[in-house]
Nucleic acid binder design. Structure first.
Lengths: 267, 267
DNA sequence: CTTCGTTGTATCAGCATAGAGACAACGATA
DNA sequence: TATCGTTGTCTCTATGCTGATACAACGAAG
């Protein structure tokens, strides 16, 4: 399938790679391709031949995977056509799970993000409050107990304590833009982080637009705007039209604390 | 090396592993640990010694990484202490970027998700409308041109066409819960997907609660509820209190189309 | 000038993973 | 019963990565 894209130098520029891990065994894109080929050809031998890989390794790889993920391929030897292999239901759902992970990763790579530096002022369980240039924001940090880090000894610490310097990451797909005039009762929604600002720029896309909202730290002074802090929001072009958004329009943005990730700064 | 952590059966159960990719070179957790050790010890030799890795490999690995990511470590030979190495600013920002990716991946693994099956009814650029059991939902699919897949020959197709069977993935951290009574003007917000339902269950957490909202397909019949389709929302415990949520309460939920991912079903 | 510990560079051996190939076992079908 | 192509299992070989080791180059400090 899929033409030789792997050679392209910037084919995966700035992107990432993700794999499922279970029982110490990684489920790779190679493994996904193998399962798909088994599903397509109806046999492990045919799959290996299609992919240009050796049959013995393909089979032993499947056995390794099944040792960690359970039955993936129903193999039958002898019989019609000499036997064959079918993708088991659990194998299919594993593929779906892998695809979802891949989609999420592609999304986080494709969707802009806002990163603010701040200092932790309070920690309450998984939730923490961070003081930033635009005020106090609340978000989640990864320290759910201990097993939060997948890496072995990467040294990455999801744990966060009061006073720590952290990055506040807000995905542009999590930010909701509201008309400033139509104030929403803050008690009626579960979106807790709320800021007022002005549209500073709109990058129109085919169907999705990127809206940058300048959120000045100072609230009273109009002649001393802080152009430094901008929050990015990803909005459908239809919503841009419906809200009639244009540069310099006052807007109110909000996003959920549970959609905000806190990351400890290196050093 | 690599102490026997891989034996832990559920150490990384259900989790994933992510790495940055640029120019065909992966930035691993091993690489992150290496850069951190360089930063800590002030020399590549010391870092390799700390990690129990060979110095020559560590150095050549850094050179490989720098070939793809640019200068990461400022090395100096001779002089005070015989020389040494410092983590460059770009190396530090790369580490931060890696940590953000890691945090996002950990988040998607830790945060519940709602997965609905559906059929694509319309495609408009990156946006698509899907017909599901709970009505029409709109979301993004990964087919931004062609270079969307990081994997080489995984066969994963982000492309979507009308009539395709897809999974609709909604992260629980993207769903906003509103009081049903306080209706929000649908024209005043950029959140396009909107459903009415009833709270079916609340799993209280320390500071974050998981709320399940039953979204029946039939709207008029009360005695024939569809217990099958539930949407999960991740809400801070404070918001649960503020909205006074309890099982069987009518609520209105909404989430952005740009926070909804469409994934082609395997087969 | 000497000392020092580091950065550069090269070579060698060990190990894990890959493919290549061979052969027996299997069981429905003709 | 013979045929067929697959699964299951084995051995051999090649390749790439890793660690181990050695040695020259470097430049500030003493």
């Amino acid at each position: 399938m899929r033409e030789p894209t792997e050679a392209g130098p910037d084919a995966a520029a700035g992107r990432g790679r993700a794999a499922l891990v279970e029982g110490g065994v990684e489920f790779d894109d190679r493994d996904a391709a193998l399962l798909r080929a088994v599903d397509a050809t109806g046999s492990v031998a045919g799959a290996a031949s299609d992919l240009g890989r050796s049959r013995s390794r393909a089979l032993s790889r499947i056995e390794t995977l099944e040792g960690a993920y359970g039955t993936l391929v129903e193999r039958r030897r002898g019989g019609e056509g000499g036997g064959g292999s079918r993708l088991a239901a659990s194998g299919r759902s594993l593929l779906d799970r892998y695809d979802r992970l891949q989609a999420v990763l592609a999304a986080t790579a494709a969707v802009p993000e806002t990163v603010l530096d701040g200092t932790v002022t309070a920690v309450d369980g998984e939730l923490a409050v961070v003081d930033t240039a635009v005020g106090e924001l609340s978000g989640l940090h990864g320290g759910d107990g201990d097993g939060a880090d997948g890496g072995a000894e990467s040294g990455w610490s999801g744990g966060i304590a009061t006073g720590d310097a952290v990055q506040v990451r807000i995905g542009a797909d999590a930010v909701t833009v509201n008309d400033a005039a139509t104030a929403v009762d803050p008690d009626a929604t579960s979106a807790r982080n709320r800021l007022d600002g002005r549209v500073s720029r709109i990058d129109p896309g085919e169907t999705v637009s990127t809206v940058r909202i300048a959120v000045g730290a100072a609230e009273g002074s109009d002649d001393a705007p802080d152009p430094d802090t901008e929050v990015v929001a990803l909005i459908t072009a239809e919503s841009v039209d419906r809200l009639d958004l244009a540069p310099d329009d006052p807007v109110s943005i909000r996003w959920k604390a549970t959609a905000t990730r806190l990351v400890a700064l290196a050093e």
